[in-house]
Structure formats: C-alpha cells, structure tokens
Design a protein around this nucleic acid. Structure first.
Lengths: 228, 228
DNA sequence: GTGCTCCTTGACGGTGCCTTGACGCGGTTG
DNA sequence: CAACCGCGTCAAGGCACCGTCAAGGAGCAC
C-alpha cells in the first residue's frame, strides 16, 4: 500500500482528501501545517505528498525545499493562489505538479496515479546526507567517507533507526520522547539512558571530535538536533 | 542537450514553442500530426514530449498509447478541451502532465523542467557482475572465472534467485525479509534459516575465504549486502 | 527401482548487539 | 557550599541472531 502525506490547513479539506484517498486504498497521513509535515515525513517517509501552499506557519516553497533536502517523493501542490509566477516558483523549488483550487478530485487522483506510476522498483531512491566527513545514505544504509578514500562506517540497526529521524529533519529539534518512540516504540519514552548510549556511539563514529559535537547537538532538556 | 519533441497541428504554435525551447537550449523536433510524431519519436528518442491533443489524424489518447508502447519519456499534454474527464483520460493513458490552453509559456517551461528533473530510468542491460575471481552473468545464468582459466561455477535455482537481488544492488543493504520475499515468496519472511543455509552455500562457492566473507557481507539484525 | 541433485528442517555453538547498572562531570538551584 | 538533575561514558551480562553440520524427503533421469 502506498503512503501519501496530505498537508492542508483546512480541516475539512484534510478530511475530504483523507476519505477519498483511503477509499482508493492509500495509506494516508495528514498534517495541518508545514512543521508537522516535515516532522511526519521524516518519521514515516511517504511515497507521495499532496501539499497545500497556504499554510499558517511556513511558506509553501520553504516546505518544498525542506522536504527536498532528503526526500525524493513526488510532491503535488494545491493552491488557491493562481497565476503562472507562483506555479513556476513551486515547480522550480522541487514540486512535481501544481493544481489550482477549486480542483476536481478525479483529476487529483489521476495526477497522483501519474506521479506514482514512475518507476519505483528499479529506481533507487537515494537519501544521502552529508554529515561531517561522511556521506550517509539512509536508503541503502551506507556511510562512506565523502572523500572516497577510507573505510566505510558501520552502524548497528538501533544506530540506523536513531540516525534516520535526525538526518531527515536537518536543523530541526527532535524531542527525546519522539526519538525513543521512533526507535524503541511507544512505552519507552522515559528510557532516556538509551538515547545517551547510542548518541554517544553515533558521535564517536561520525564526529571529528566526539567530545565537542558539531553536528549531533544536544539541546538540554529538549532533545537532539542534527546540524548539517 | 535534452531533446524535446513538440506535436501540434497549428504551425504558429509549433513555431512559438520551438523558438522558446531552443532559446532555453533544448534540441527541438516538431511534428504536425500523430503519425509524424510516432515516426519521429521512433527515429530519435526524445527526452520529453509536448503533445497537443487536437490532432487531425489520430485521437490524443491513441498517440499517447502508441508512444507508451516502447517510449518512457515524459509526456506533457496541451489541450484546448477543458474539463476533468479529458484530463483524467489523458493522464491514465500515460501522460505525465496536462495543461489547458491558453497556457503561460513560463509555466510550460517550469513543468518541462519538473518532468526532466526526474532521474533517467537508467536502463542497464548489462547483467554481468564481477565478484571475487568470477564473472557472474544474471542474464544467461553463468558464472565463469574472470581469468578465463578454470571450471565455471554451478548454482542451483534457489541460489540464483538469492544472488540476483544482491548483485543487482551493489553496495546496498538488502533486508532479510526482502530476500525471503524475492526467493521464497510472501509469507516466509520469518524463515531466516533458509537465508543462512544458502548464503553459506554462496560464500563457499564465491568467496576466496568463506569464513571471512569480503563480498557477501552480513549486517547483523538488518540483512545482507553485496560489496563489489 | 536406483541413484542423484536439490530443498527443507532441526539442532548446536559462537559472535555481536542490546540492555542494565554504575560512576563522573558540569550547570542550576536552594 | 551542598544537593540535585541532566548528560556522557564505561563495563558486564544475557540473549537474539548468525554460521555450520547433518539428516530426511521430494522430484527427476536412467
């Protein structure tokens, strides 16, 4: 089942899209604003994204750019604002399609089929992030020195699970409880010692000076942040 | 330079599109009708196609279907006919985008950039992989010593099925569950002992030192990886 | 029927990963 | 100044996972 992330600030539009998409057997996640969208996409990578431009917190182009940092899933933009300038801006920011409200639900579904039709199996969705001297690919689970020379890094499953939500939300703070839920599942939100152990291991492998981390940054009392 | 095939029955539209596209450094081929379009696309495979639906000889959907038989280049449809039904029909026939006339040239160019941004479907007819001292060909199911001298290797059907997804994704981690699905079909994701047995057999045949594998690498808790 | 190859299944030992507890350090608070 | 809290580090134990061997059974050629 393909996962679709729907981002819109109007609850009724969110409901309408969710119902229609679920009826077509998509797995739907919804977000009411840009920050939630970026966070959700980081924790559960979707196969496609339907994005309304008129969000309360972030500009639409910022959301697209934030997603495109690591996410290559097709983005279909919905917008009430018309005119070629906005369309061009959104498309050049990384969107794959642009629909003007009011739109036909049938047309949206057809355009969604069109972007999802693109070859998935052979295409290797790369999710490469540069961190310190290494190029980390969350898609193929590889971490090699960016220079090309040297030994690749090896991470354990838990280390990969912890690394993923951080690297997929560059510059953003990720709550300790959120990380614990992502890695160890719900019910372990208070086992912060797990986080300390594995963050230590990640820093020892990735950071040039593990005692003074520059990329995997602790926000005391809040959580952690990946600074690219 | 990317090749674009423009199909439209109005000569002035053809000229306008040709001028604008050439100004953006595209190589442009033009066709006034569907038959010419199909012929041209066959002679010189384009990277993208801009297709007007109102052609004198063939219906637009027929042209799309005719192209899609062998051509996977993105198709942007232009149409004077409006309404969601036509759009849906064209998209489901295989088009990638749909613009209603009159359209903004800037928007068309942006949409063209968007569809051309997609990674080239990397047709890789080359199915031979060098692993250790052997040259393995997944197309003909042969594995001979790279030196030319010596006995060819023999793999059982199950061993070939297990080898294929690993060798087709060099450097990439392949999940144990994915391998089990590929080889034994869905529903056997927990029979990890199968994997252990056959990975052991593959290593015994391919690796110089089966006890210390260098190409068929285990990632504990995650899966296996072919390291070339 | 006989012999062969191949797939399946069970059992056993070892390695590496996860968990758990404890301790030290720095910053904040009373 | 002392107590406390949050964070980073280390070491040790348990256990899931992995590699290997061996035996049983199905399918096929002769």
């Amino acid at each position: 089942m393909r996962r679709v992330l729907v981002v819109d600030d109007e609850p009724q539009m969110l409901r309408a899209l969710g119902i229609n998409l679920r009826a077509r057997h998509y797995a739907v996640a919804t977000a009411p604003d840009g920050a939630t969208a970026l966070r959700l996409a980081g924790h559960c990578p979707p196969d496609a994204i339907v994005l309304d431009l008129g969000l309360p917190d972030l500009d639409g182009v910022e959301v697209i750019a934030g997603l495109r940092v690591w996410c290559s899933a097709p983005i279909i933009v919905l917008s009430g604002r018309t005119g070629p300038a906005v369309t061009v801006e959104a498309l050049d920011a990384g969107a794959d399609d642009y629909l003007t409200k009011p739109f036909s639900m049938d047309e949206l579904l057809a355009r969604l089929r069109a972007v999802l039709r693109r070859p998935v199996p052979a295409a290797q969705p790369r999710e490469t992030v540069e961190v310190a001297a290494f190029t980390v690919d969350l898609g193929s689970y590889t971490a090699v020195p960016t220079s090309g020379e040297g030994e690749p890094l090896h991470f354990t499953p838990t280390e990969w699970r912890l690394l993923a939500p951080l690297l997929r939300n560059p510059g953003r703070l990720v709550t300790g409880a959120q990380l614990l839920r992502d890695v160890w599942g719900p019910g372990r939100e208070n086992r912060t010692n797990y986080l300390r152990i594995y963050m230590s291991a990640l820093r020892r492998k990735l950071e040039p000076d593990p005692s003074r981390p520059r990329h995997l940054i602790t926000e005391p009392g809040m959580g952690y942040r990946f600074d690219p």
